[in-house]
Design a protein around this nucleic acid. Structure first.
Lengths: 319, 319
DNA sequence: AAATATTATGTAAGTACTTACATAAATAAA
DNA sequence: TTTATTTATGTAAGTACTTACATAATATTT
């Protein structure tokens, strides 16, 4: 216990979990010793149903911040014990309205003095230790509602990632990463065609050997995204297989990668970059347009092999 | 969520549980998205083992305020993942010493910047919402360590019980209560003999019909304890089957019940009360002695039928 | 009006515990 | 020194969830 305390804000989750476990376990013991068939976690259910009279399952879940299967399971237990009644909502046949049975109501009445005792004991305990504890809990709850710990952590992690960005060229060891990145992206938005399968199964033969390039954007050893640049003719190259891992989206890695691709095309002395995209992929299309790509009707020598990406875009490079 | 908040200190356990669930779930999401095979609840384990280098299983449990089977299970998972090593303690062959493997150490090192980010994010979150939150949590933890919520609640409940004490005489409906009370007590300290079984199986025939009495001390409908008074001869009666339910001990209900028994004996015009107890039952013996009972070698007409309670005590009644 | 998406609920299977028990080693007591 | 008690661990079974899926009713879009 003292150890977790020493970890301070380093392990705030575990610490608070311990506190709640202790409280719940103590309450459970009180009910058990008084010979009352009641679980501490039913308390909020009872209070809620008592207040709302009739309430559908999912609303219980949202009010109590629980998953709906958890609620369904408790509801089933309470129904088996005949403490609650449920019936279909006449206005919405999906909804199952939960209410206290007369047995449930009389149990609530029987428990009411005990609940008052618990309330008093809690208030006294807080009074002598930290009178504003609940106020502080509320503040923390609010802060987390404004911005979750997940988001806050990401905001710390991502700048670190951004400061350590690197571009590396394709190697054999990246084969499975390249495949996974592209498969995930295709599965998300479109469908994988035979044309994709050929390229993904052997990018070395299909891209590198044909004077093409594959790059990965990585940070601290973790792959964030990839793209390929393939030669069409001496003037133009095609940008494709352009994707950022789902969990890294929204942090402008796409912009960084596109810039790198343009630099690379410049370095390779191409005059323009061609790409195929799909109107469905709004974010991607916007990204290309912002950087100066313009929709063109088609490009000679380069028909859309997949037959799916109907939008052809071009960027003319200023050397 | 707002509902639980509205319940205030009425549902402090549930509220804090929600908070910790939210925090843990968010952290879990961070690890998952970064593709790291690590669970939030392993964090305290890692920190602890990292600090102690080598530590036995039960010590982990006490330091982390967990049950030892929970620890064993996590240890087994981490061992399967080769993140920790375990070996027997040479000085104490029962102990299994847990330490981080080299893989575990390098994972800890890899995660260290992430943990720092989490720490920073937490500190910032607390800073902007409730800078003294952890201090308050500590105060509440201390208050609960001084006196648990269980104890505090009991201290509220019991005076209510004391103010509603009643004595009722045996009725058929109390048979099973009488049996259970006595069986529990006997199982706790001694062994149930055939003599006990006869009386408990039919207290009406064995006690009431033979000019004896059985009383129950109850409060708000709940039975707290029982005793019986049996006629030995015109001068003396025997007090036996004297027991208070385990969960109600330590609240002077025994004193109340003994006083009632003495009053009853007085009312029935007996000159003395005899009882058999056992030196093992220190609390009971002390209770009787305090009220004026004195050890006597034996009582004619009343041999110890069970052959087990070696201590005979007597109280001479002042009419 | 038909097609699609969303909402409300339920179920099945898995995970992280818990309680209750068992066992062996070490320590204390008789 | 034998016997009882305590300590350290493990295991098995149960509980309270979770995630992932399925289904039907309602709402929204085309």
């Amino acid at each position: 216990m003292s150890f977790i305390k020493d970890l301070e804000s380093f392990a705030i989750g575990s610490r608070i979990k311990n506190l709640s476990d202790t409280l719940m376990k103590d309450m459970s013991r009180v009910y058990k010793e008084l010979g009352i068939d009641f679980e501490p976690r039913w308390f909020t259910f009872f209070q809620l149903i008592l207040q709302k009279k009739e309430i559908p399952v999912t609303q219980i879940a949202t009010e109590l911040n629980q998953t709906h299967p958890a609620v369904v399971q408790v509801i089933n237990i309470l129904e088996k014990k005949k403490l609650i009644n449920t019936k279909k909502d006449k206005n919405d046949n999906r909804k199952r309205l939960v209410s206290l049975s007369s047995k449930g109501k009389s149990l609530a009445e029987e428990l009411s003095p005990l609940w008052k005792d618990v309330h008093m004991a809690t208030k006294e305990m807080l009074g002598e230790s930290a009178p504003d504890f609940l106020e502080k809990v509320g503040k923390v709850e609010n802060a987390l509602q404004q911005k979750s710990m997940y988001q806050r952590t990401k905001e710390k992690i991502n700048p670190r990632i951004i400061n350590n960005l690197e571009f590396v060229e394709y190697e054999k060891k990246y084969l499975s990463d390249f495949q996974k990145l592209n498969e995930d992206w295709l599965n998300e938005y479109l469908e994988i065609t035979d044309c994709d399968r050929i390229i993904l199964s052997n990018p070395y033969n299909e891209i590198i050997k044909k004077e093409g390039h594959i790059f990965f954007i990585i940070s601290e050893g973790k792959i964030i995204g990839t793209y390929s640049l393939q030669k069409i003719n001496n003037e133009a190259c095609e940008l494709s297989k352009f994707t950022i891992k789902k969990e890294y989206r929204g942090w402008k890695f796409g912009e960084r990668m596109l810039e790198h691709a343009i630099d690379k095309a410049k370095e390779l002395r191409f005059e323009s970059i061609i790409l195929f995209t799909h109107p469905k992929l709004k974010e991607a299309t916007l990204l290309y347009r912002k950087r100066g790509f313009e929709v063109i009707p088609e490009y000679p020598e380069l028909t859309d092999k997949t037959g799916r990406c109907s939008l052809c875009m071009q960027l003319v490079i200023n050397h």
